[in-house]
Design a protein around this nucleic acid. Structure first.
Length: 645
RNA sequence: GCUGUUGUAGCUCAGGGGUAGAGCACUUCCUUGGUAAGGAAGAGGUCGUGAGUUCAAUUCUCAUCAACAGCUCCA
């Protein structure tokens, strides 16, 4: 009996039924078979050693396919486990999956610490075992057999996993002396793994639950060639150079002080310029979009948050209330601006004709983030949201939501953010007690968000369990230099707070109605946005944002007077920069300005002073020639304007 | 918050039971130089903080604080 196998190029080949993946690969080419790691059969990735007994469309997976990499790293995790068991007999295994860059394995070392020396020894053992070219063998086992195997091995984690599996679907994989519960797929043998680097050790809760025991997680990455590993490590080094914490220090944008407190950023003068430019850009965009700026205090009565529900939800693990000395009244540092804005809405009766009302505020909020979560400017305890709350009629929700999407996209586009993910953050249906409000309104809000996103042709990813406790969100996620994902912009539909704050408007029917709230922050927080912006442009800010736009560099002290004249003219035109009149050679001044990533350098000497010219040098590009100073000013002014709103 | 690692000059880092070192930055002097580091001299640290062991601690031990990596969390 023969079966028809169709290949990615559209061709169809016939094979005897039961043909193995590797044989299909060989029939295409020897080279492909040599590099083949796994095979995709009708969309399912499986081992090359498995037989195919029906017509199928297949794709041979190599290192160049995501699926091939995953099988490779998955097998690498098994190799690491084998090495670990050889070095540390009795170790218990949790899970060991492939991840975006490499793999990890969670293990229980019985309380033994695992340090750098252990890591190096493990890596060496892996290299040794890889050379044995141990074949990854797949075996179907009964549940009883699986339970028996791991109870004899005394591995409670595997037993827990097996107990949740259905009999008849359980498989073991074996290579060398190591056997693991695993559904595969795996690469043919360990010999493919030529380059190995174990990266770090960290704690990780069993099954991601902080009530469970913490296991030791060992991260590693492997490659088929040593050169690829070197390339990857080089890439990591380069990414570290873009880290906003490093650049923030080098470019003197912000700092932290132990005395002030952890997670409380101090914005230095240059960082403040950057931040204020962004604020100004947003203010203009918002005025144009019909927002009314408001200002509210940094603290609010505890009862405000009891009403909003935030106190019940977050009160325990927040900064504790401030008490007034005489009356003993309790106030909280505001963790968000919405309750204040609700009370602004409530300050007078509203008519349906007034809606939507859009209240915007750069509101600084304080949240007691867990100490281990603090991270540069991306996760801090005091930060400023470019917050606004839109109060609208139910029939206006979608239109308003779409307008906000447009605003967010405009902001992202103006700043060159193209690699974002639009995430529809829904509630977790399995944990409804985490949320307030009834199902009907939740369903409605979730539907409205998805529809608005679809209407704007936004590609979205829906993620359950990511909603706020009062409503679903549309979040704009952006990755940092090291590949970690952060939420920037967010738009949320909320039916709950208007109820809790008893917000009302009088409709055309002369009846009282409840408005809907849309929470939104295009930047999210200025702090996090600046952090991601720094990493995005590696500190080479667009001209309109750059804290220093121009450095004026006289060739020698003899031309300081002319340089000062040039500098003062720029200053009078609101162009930011500095005059470097130090007693240094021009090469040195240029180098220092380049290191500081100053976009433009104006070099002035005898020739320039005589003709009122400037020699222009552009950061990262070099000498751009000499031109009349007045001409430079005109051209600079037009290229340094903030994006149109 | 949890697990692990780290903490030495403004920055980047070396060192090590007998009260500390480099490069850059900084100060002064010399130099007046045309597109990425001119030369010389000088100043600067109770080695994160607190306890313990020791004749002696920056070095060893413990605690604490902070940073880093990951986990958990993120209104």
């Amino acid at each position: 009996m023969t079966i028809k196998i169709s290949l990615p190029d559209g061709s169809i080949r016939e094979f005897p039924s039961g043909v193995k993946g590797i044989e299909v690969a060989k029939s295409i080419s020897e080279g492909l078979a040599r590099n083949a790691l796994a095979i995709e059969v009708n969309g399912t990735i499986q081992d090359l050693s498995r037989s195919i007994d029906q017509d199928a469309s297949v794709k041979i997976l190599t290192w160049n396919d995501g699926g091939g990499k995953y099988a490779f790293w998955h097998s690498s995790a098994h190799l690491m486990a084998e090495a670990l068991e050889a070095l540390h007999p009795g170790v218990k295994f949790g899970i060991g999956p492939p991840i975006e860059n490499g793999f990890y394995y969670d293990v229980d070392l019985g309380g033994k610490a695992f340090g750098d020396d252990d890591l190096a020894a493990l890596e060496a053992k892996m290299k040794e075992l890889a050379k044995k070219e141990s074949v990854f063998g797949r075996r179907e086992v009964s549940k009883a057999e699986a339970l028996d195997f791991f109870s004899r091995k005394n591995d409670p984690y595997k037993l827990e996993l097996i107990s949740e599996l259905t009999d008849g679907t359980i498989t073991f994989y074996e290579q060398g002396n190591f056997t693991d519960l695993c559904k595969g797929p795996h690469i043919p043998h360990t010999g493919f793994i030529k380059a190995i680097k174990l990266l770090n050790v960290a704690g990780a809760y069993w099954r991601g639950n902080e009530k469970n025991k913490m296991l030791t997680r060992i991260y590693g990455i492997t490659f088929p060639k040593q050169k690829e590993l070197e390339g990857y490590l080089h890439l990591l080094e380069e990414a570290k150079k873009r880290d906003h914490r490093k650049l923030g220090k080098e470019l003197e944008l912000f700092t932290f002080s132990e005395k002030v407190g952890m997670g409380l950023p101090l914005w230095l003068p240059k960082g403040t310029i950057l931040r204020e430019r962004l604020e100004q850009f947003m203010r203009k965009a918002q005025v144009k979009a019909g927002y009314d700026p408001v200002v509210t205090p940094h603290i609010g009565s505890k009862s405000l948050y009891v009403t909003s529900g935030h106190y019940e939800k977050y009160g325990k693990d927040s900064f504790q209330p401030i008490r007034t000395p005489d009356e003993g009244e309790e106030f909280l540092l505001k963790p968000m601006n919405c309750p204040h804005h609700c009370e602004i809405y409530n300050s007078k009766p509203r008519s349906y004709k007034d809606l939507p009302i859009r209240l915007a505020e750069f509101g600084t909020v304080y949240r007691y983030e867990q100490s281990g979560e603090l991270h540069g400017l991306t996760r801090v305890r005091g930060f400023t949201q470019d917050d606004a709350h839109i109060f609208c009629r139910p029939d206006q929700v979608k239109e308003e939501f779409i307008k906000v999407i447009d605003l967010v996209l405009h902001v992202f586009k103006s700043l060159g953010f193209e690699n974002y993910t639009a995430q529809v953050s829904l509630r977790d249906p399995a944990n409804k007690e985490k949320y307030i409000g009834d199902d009907e309104l939740w369903d409605r809000a979730e539907r409205e968000i998805q529809e608005a996103a679809d209407e704007r042709g936004l590609k979205t990813v829906a993620v359950k369990g990511e909603a706020a406790f009062y409503g679903p969100k549309l979040d704009f996620m952006v990755k940092d230099a090291l590949g970690r994902s952060w939420q920037l912009g967010t738009i949320q539909v909320d039916y709950q707070l208007p109820q809790r704050f008893e917000l009302e408007y009088v409709g055309s029917d002369n009846q009282r109605h409840r408005p809907v709230m849309i929470h939104r922050a295009p930047f999210g927080s200025l702090e996090r946005f600046v952090a991601v912006l720094i990493e995005h442009c590696a500190g080479n800010f667009p001209l309109w944002l750059s804290p220093d736009q121009i450095a004026v560099l006289p060739i020698s002290e003899r031309f300081n007077a002319y340089a000062e004249d040039v500098f003062n003219t720029l200053k009078a035109l609101d162009i930011r920069g500095f005059l470097d009149d130090r007693d240094e050679k021009i090469g040195r001044k240029i180098r220092d300005a380049e290191v500081k990533k100053i976009p433009y350098m104006l070099i002035v000497g005898e020739k320039e002073a005589a003709e009122r010219k400037v020699a222009v040098r552009i950061h990262g590009k070099g000498d751009a020639g000499t031109m009349p100073f007045d001409q430079f000013v005109v051209e600079f002014k037009s290229s340094s304007a903030a994006p149109e709103n």
